[in-house]
Amino acid sequence: MKRVLYFYPDNPVAKNSGNRTWAMRLLKYFKNRGVSVDFVSLSDWAHDWDTASVDWLLDNKLATNVHILFRKPPKKNIANYLISYKLPFLLKNRDGVLPDLVGNRLKHQFNAILKQRQYDYIIISYAHWAHLLKNNPLVGKAKTIIDTHDFLTSLFQNHKRFKLGASFEEEIKRLRLFNEIWTTSTDEQYIFSQFCKGSDVRLITTNLDRNHLQEKPISQRQYDIIYVASDNPHNKRSIKWFFDQVYPLLPQNLRICIIGRITAFVNDYPNVVKVPFVQDLSEYYTDTKIVICPMLSGTGIKIKVVEAFSYALPVVGTTRALDGLANKTHNGCLISDDPETFAKYIKLLLSDERKYK
């Protein structure tokens, strides 16, 4: 049996963002192929780990062992907190380059896991955490894999004192530490493969649990529009743009459903239903006509778009909705960055059955 050490900083059991959904599907992939996974995460990163989540992973045999580590020392001893964590972190990340989130405390805990057994594969999520394996002799003969999730240089560009060249160079240096580089985006695969010649840059397709068939007639579906999103900064900008500039151009009798943590940033409207969390999105996808993806920024493939395709639902989106897709045209999406055209596409799909199909 192959043994994998899989580091992912968030709680995938929550499934309230695209990246968490991706991590959960990866765990299910390993389980279905008889791979033993030691799962490593952070208690003080997502702040939503609890005993129930750990037990759920173990009970469902998605992980053989679960290790929840701490990135920061407790603040009870403020002197130790400042000297051992805060000051080194600020000094290391003061120059506007891609942040390095690996401190001595975290690396010590991670190394303690590596000392317990040898692994066939070690997977690290995000280049932020790449230095967990930098010059680390405890890796042994394991094949090392970085699951990039996103092009972090692009995500980091709005930070103060951002330095494009230095950040991109740093990200590439971190990726080159690994035998394999995983990305779900064809765009990012192209970029990384140009600069990481010594590593195998792989495009990992977004796998879904099953194929979905729309059985309910279009006319009987409860919602005209659905939008699923977490509350990251990109989604906040996107939903603001939609309600500020597109929503006023739409008929006020349209039934709109917003799902996910993004609902906390949506005002109350008479024709808008807000659902902060659902365990299974299928009941909503099968009861809607259109999915929107009004992204203005961000990187990587949009899980919400792929999910819409799996339910045979058309997508109205902005240019960023196509990120990561190999086929940018004739793919089930109507695309515009102009609010009036975006609204026109929604109205067209809802009024023209031939165009919808």
Rank of each mutant, 00 (worst) to 15 (best):
R3I: 15
Y6S: 09
P9R: 07
S17D: 15
R20W: 03
T21V: 14
M24W: 14
R25N: 09
D38V: 06
L42I: 03
L42K: 06
D50N: 13
S53N: 11
V54I: 13
W56N: 14
N60S: 10
N60W: 07
N60P: 02
A63S: 10
H67T: 13
I68M: 13
P74D: 01
Y81I: 03
I83N: 02
S84P: 02
Y85I: 00
L91R: 15
K92A: 11
K92T: 10
N93G: 07
D95N: 08
V97P: 02
H108R: 10
Q116K: 15
Y119G: 06
I122M: 01
A127H: 02
K141A: 10
T144S: 13
I146Y: 02
T153A: 11
S154W: 05
L155G: 05
L155Y: 11
Q157C: 07
H159A: 12
E180M: 14
T183W: 15
S185T: 13
D187A: 12
D187N: 13
E188N: 13
S193Y: 05
S199Q: 09
N207I: 05
L208R: 03
Q214W: 01
Y227F: 15
V228K: 00
A229I: 15
P233N: 12
N235H: 15
N235D: 15
N235Y: 12
L249E: 09
Q252I: 12
R255K: 14
R261H: 09
F265S: 12
D268A: 11
K274M: 06
V275I: 15
P276H: 15
L281G: 03
Y284A: 07
T288D: 02
T288Y: 00
K289P: 01
C293E: 08
S297V: 13
S297I: 14
I301C: 00
K302D: 04
K304Y: 03
V306W: 00
S310R: 03
T318P: 08
G324F: 03
K328H: 09
K328D: 02
K328N: 07
G332F: 14
C333I: 05
D338F: 10
P339G: 04
T341F: 00
K347Q: 15
L349T: 10
L349W: 04
L350K: 13
R354S: 10
K357G: 02
